[in-house]
Amino acid sequence: MTDDDVTTAAGEPVVPSADDELARSLAIAVLGVPGVLQTYDARPVVAAVVADAASALRTGLGAGLPLVKPVPLTPSSPIAVSRGAAGLSVTVKIAVSEERPAAATCRDVYAVVADAVAALPEGGDVDTISVQISRIG
């Protein structure tokens, strides 16, 4: 969780970090790939717990303080985005349909993520893009 996650005193809506924004847009893109049934939480367990707690805190703040504009509940994306020395890493875990070859769906998901990352205005190096199929059918 970053400072960006905290509601400002003036009650401005929360501004999610760029990576959170990216993760959310990737989740939507991945779910649009033919054959993808579902995404699973790919964040490391601790990160997921912290993010969910932060999300719950924001909702709580919104409910408790009427002056602060209630923040819509925006659950963190299950897609994990992280930055290291070698660049950006993205991890996606999915369930795929058995209607089409699972390996083909997996490659399409990779392509969608790679394209989205390449289209980022700030650009930057990409380290790895991991796509894991956790269930078929």
Binding site: T39, D41, D52, P75, S134
Partner: peptide, 9 residues
């Protein structure tokens, strides 16, 4: 989402 991959529930 949120849940980890499961055997078909």
């Amino acid at each position: 989402m949120g849940a980890e991959p499961l055997p078909r529930p």
